[in-house]
Computed example of a mutant assay.
Amino acid sequence: MSLSSYLAEAAALIQRTGTPALDEAMNDAIATIADALKAGRPLLVCGNGGSASDAMHITGELVGRFLKERRALNAICLSSNPAVLTAWSNDYDYATVFSRQVEAYGVEGGVLLGISTSGNSANVIEALTTARALGMKTVGLTGEGGGKMAALCDHLLAVPSRRTPEIQQVHLCLYHYLCEMVEARCA
Results as ranks from 00 to 15, higher is better:
M1S: 14
S2R: 14
S2L: 10
S2H: 13
L3W: 11
S5H: 14
E9R: 15
E9K: 14
A10Y: 07
A11Q: 13
L13P: 00
I14L: 14
Q15L: 11
R16S: 13
T17W: 01
T19F: 03
D23R: 13
D23Y: 12
D23C: 12
A25L: 01
A25T: 06
A25F: 04
M26L: 14
D28R: 13
D28W: 10
A29C: 00
A29Q: 01
A29D: 00
T32N: 09
D35M: 11
D35K: 12
A36M: 02
P42H: 14
L44I: 12
L44M: 11
L44K: 06
C46Y: 12
G47Q: 08
G49E: 09
G49R: 10
G49W: 10
S51Q: 12
A52W: 13
A55C: 10
M56Q: 15
T59Y: 11
T59D: 07
G60V: 10
L62W: 06
V63S: 11
G64C: 07
R65E: 10
K68R: 15
K68I: 12
K68S: 14
L73N: 00
A75N: 00
A75L: 01
S79I: 03
S79V: 03
N81E: 15
P82E: 12
P82S: 13
V84I: 14
A87F: 04
S89G: 15
S89Y: 05
S89F: 02
N90R: 04
D91Q: 09
D91V: 06
A95F: 06
F98T: 01
R100I: 04
R100W: 06
A104L: 12
A104H: 09
V107N: 13
E108W: 04
G110A: 00
G110E: 01
V111P: 00
V111T: 01
L112M: 05
L112E: 04
L112V: 06
G114Y: 02
S116Y: 03
T117E: 01
N123F: 13
I125V: 15
T130P: 09
T130D: 11
R132T: 15
L134V: 09
G135R: 05
K137G: 11
G140T: 10
L141T: 02
T142F: 01
T142V: 03
G143W: 00
G147S: 01
K148Q: 14
K148F: 11
M149P: 00
A150F: 02
A151P: 04
A151H: 11
A151Q: 13
C153T: 15
C153S: 11
D154F: 09
H155T: 04
H155K: 08
L156D: 06
V159W: 05
V159F: 05
P165N: 12
E166G: 12
I167T: 06
H171R: 09
L174C: 08
L178E: 04
C179I: 05
C179H: 04
M181R: 15
E183S: 07
R185W: 07
